[in-house]
Structure formats: C-alpha cells, structure tokens
Nucleic acid binder design. Structure first.
Lengths: 238, 238
DNA sequence: TCTTTGACGTTAGCGCACGAACATCCTTCC
DNA sequence: GGAAGGATGTTCGTGCGCTAACGTCAAAGA
C-alpha cells in the first residue's frame, strides 16, 4: 500500500487505515519477539534498564510512570491491549536508559521485540512504518496535552481538564446519548495522574459531583459529562 | 540508504545520520512549499487554525506555546533554525485545529509546506521519513520530560530540573570544561516554561546562585553547572 | 546627557494545596 | 457471618507560591 494512501485523508476509503501501530501490524509471536507474562504490579522495565527493545501489550493493561525524588509516582501514560510500549528506544537505542517504570496494572501478556529486529521488520513493511509514525504523532499530542494540564495551578482546573482528556481518549460513550462517557479509574490513580494528593482529589471530585458535571459512587464507574464539564471550565475565565 | 543502516546504531559509520529531520533533508524552497517571513512576536499559527501544513524554520527562532484560561502562557517547545514545526498535523490532518500558538521570537523566515505535498515527498525519500520518525521520538521524550518537570510541586525542584533539561538540550558547553553550559534565557521566559510567576523565578534563581549551582547577572548569559545542580537536586531526597 | 525601556530584585498579605490522621462504607475472602 | 482490605469522605494546621506593587540597575536611543 502506498504511503500517501495511508496518510492523506482526502480519500475516504482509507480513513480506517489512519491508525497507530498495533499487534495486528505485527507477524505472529515467535516469528518476531517472544511472549512474556507479567503478574499484577510487576515491572516490565525499570529506570536503570536499557531501552533496547519495544513491547506490545497482548493482554492486560500497562502503566508508564515516573517516580520523583520524594518517591511520589506520576502516571505518564496508560497502555491498553494491542498497543505498543517502550517506543522511545528509537531515540538512541545504544545506551539510553529508561528513566521510567512500566508496570503491569493487572496480569498481562506482553510481546517483547529487540529493537534491531523491529527495525528490520519495519524496513520490509511500510504499512507498519507509517502506523508507527502515526502512533508517535498521537502520543506526542497527548504528551503535550499532559504538560498543559500539569501547568494549571488550581485543583479544579487541573483535575477537570484531566478528566476531559481521559474522557476523550479512554472514555466509553453511552449508547445514543452523546455527552456522558464512562471511565474506570479511582481517586488514587487520578491523584497520581494529576500530581495531586489523594485527599485533595476526593474533595475536588466532590465539588464537581455537586455541580452535576460528573457522577460516581463507591466502587462504581466514573461518569463524566464532557460538554458540561468543558463549558464549566471555560466559563470560569470571566 | 537502507533503513537499518540509519536506525541501527551498531554501525559506527552511520552514527551521524541518526538525527531528526531538518531543512537539509528537504528539496530547495520553491520545489516544495514557499518561504514566508514573520516579524518578531507575530504568530505563525493560532489555536483556531487548521493543522494542515508543516513548517521548517529557515532563519530565526519560534516558540510553541499554550494560553490557559486565565491568559497565562505556557511554553511547550522552542524550535531553532533548520528544525521542523507543526508536525502534529500527521495525527488527523482533516479537521484538527492547532489549539496552540506558534510565535516567532525574533524576525524569522519559515518554509511552509502543505501536508499532502510533504507526504508525497516522504514517499519518495525514505531517509527523510526515518529522520521524521526520529524527530517524533525525540520530541516525545522531551514532552514526557516536560510533564515530569511540571509534576514537581516545589519551586526549587521544578525550576532546577527545568534548568537541567534546558542545559542538556540547548546549552552551549564550555571549551575543555565539562560541566558548566551557557543558556540564553531570561527569568520571564523561564517563568512561562516552568509555569511559575516571574517574581518567584527570580527568588528561586537567587537561591540557586547563592549555592554556586548557577551564575548570571543582568543582561548576561545564564551559566548552569549541570553535574553540581543534578547532585544538589538528588541530594535533597534524604 | 537625559529619558526610556527592559531585566532583575524585594517585600507583604493571602489563598490554596499538602500532609497526616481518622472516619465511613463496600467488597472479598476465609 | 466475621474479618480484612480497599476505596471514598472529612478535617485541621502549616507551608509555600501567587498577586500586586514597587525598587534598582544597565543598555539603548533621542
């Protein structure tokens, strides 16, 4: 398939191929890489590991996080099944270290591929190469948006805009009801993602809930009303 | 040139080609894109513009920034001469808006290329394609590090680690003296990059200067002693 | 030389987010 | 059914960073 067919979107038939790289772009396990099992809360890589390999989550859920000097953990990204992981090894595969943690949130199966093997595969598969480029572009956009969110100083702003981003990226829309989406995330993890204390997350979430912008209960999924929340956050300007 | 020759670094002869995409990868202006002049402090794009084109800085210096709801500006990235700009258009070129500002810091000449033209060029130039991939990878790493920095709550930590990143990325090393590097940046811009107030930046910089970790004076370049600063920041853990 | 401009320095008061500690409620496992 | 663990709720004191305002100093232009 030609590159411009994949990347230029004015051809409607190819819209569906405008997607990031997934396990579907890869050959069967065994032909390239090996399958590795990780128990819940086990580390796939640690800060001092070399970034000389790339991963694909076959089953489960992985979190990429950073531990600051005080030991507080900051969630950088969530990686779901079929998604790639550790793609930063393309920057300088020689002697670059990870500097971050990748941790299996639940029991997970992960395909591990050596960087050089992956590069050889990309050489012969231009569709995979373009999909990888798209993945990088998407993740760069998400990372810059994370930076924007963390730049907000107020709790309502920071947490509210984080909920907006999470809702747009990972929220499950309700059937035939545009607006509210469902998220499976607890206050503890929101705190690690927004760089706030868990207690303050609970207080701030309570305020947003009182205003009807979100709804949640103990051990129940979180429902975010995206349009209302966005309008509320933009209204606070005046 | 073959893809694995460029991306695999165990061949020392190709180390120099392990670089991001620059103007040198592109054909002459006129064959692809057009040259546009921007005065100091003029905008190359605004939040409501479509992201349907990619840019290269030919001369000058461009800042990508984000304006929060209160009008405070947050610097996302600095783009120097020869570097690309606006590469996020690869995510969804159709109807995505920029959401950010790109502003010429000084008088700048910028090559403007339509996204579809750029894609066509990449199709016939695999070296440029790989270089673009490398650029994305590098910028993703930088963006995640920006997020880490903004997640720090204390002023000394946030500003100190920002200085470390800036020094490693853009600092000019001193001849035959490893350690100190020179940066050309003022307190005002540091404040916009670290999401702090200018006054607080001045106070915090004063403390770092008293400790001998950095040195600067009015209208003089900033000198950061990278190893000492890093040791200081990591020592504060205990 | 005088003024203007921009960059750095300083202070006071205030609001907010954090840490710590404890309370409440639900779920799961024994 | 009881116990243990996890998740959410609540409060208080403290520290820190923001806003605002003003001061100081050097370079550039008239």
């Amino acid at each position: 398939m030609m590159l411009n067919q994949l990347l230029v979107a004015d051809d409607h038939r190819t819209c569906q191929t405008l997607t990031g790289i997934t396990l579907q772009h890869m050959p069967d396990v065994g032909a390239l890489g090996r399958l590795q099992h990780y128990g819940s809360s086990s580390d796939i890589w640690r800060p001092e590991d070399e970034s000389d390999r790339v991963f694909f989550v076959k089953r489960g859920h992985v979190t990429v996080l950073f531990a600051d000097a005080q030991g507080h953990e900051i969630v950088l990204r969530q990686v779901e099944a079929d998604q790639p992981l550790g793609e930063l090894c393309f920057c300088a595969p020689e002697h670059r270290l990870r500097e971050t943690f990748a941790r299996a949130q639940v029991e997970s199966d992960v395909v591990v591929i050596k960087h050089s093997d992956f590069v050889n595969y990309l050489q012969s598969n231009s569709a995979a190469l373009q999909a990888l480029l798209f993945t990088f572009c998407t993740r760069l956009g998400e990372a810059e948006r994370r930076a924007e969110i963390l730049a907000y100083r107020g709790a309502e702003e920071r947490l509210g805009r984080l909920l907006l981003q999470l809702g747009e990226a990972r929220g499950h829309p309700h059937k035939a009801t545009p607006g509210p989406v469902t998220l499976h995330i607890g206050h503890e993890e929101l705190a690690r993602t927004a760089a706030m204390s868990r207690a303050h997350v609970t207080v701030t979430m309570g305020k947003l809930r009182e205003q009807g912008l979100i709804s949640y209960e103990r051990n129940r999924p979180l429902i975010v009303n995206l349009p209302q929340l966005e309008a509320y956050l933009n209204k606070r300007v005046a």
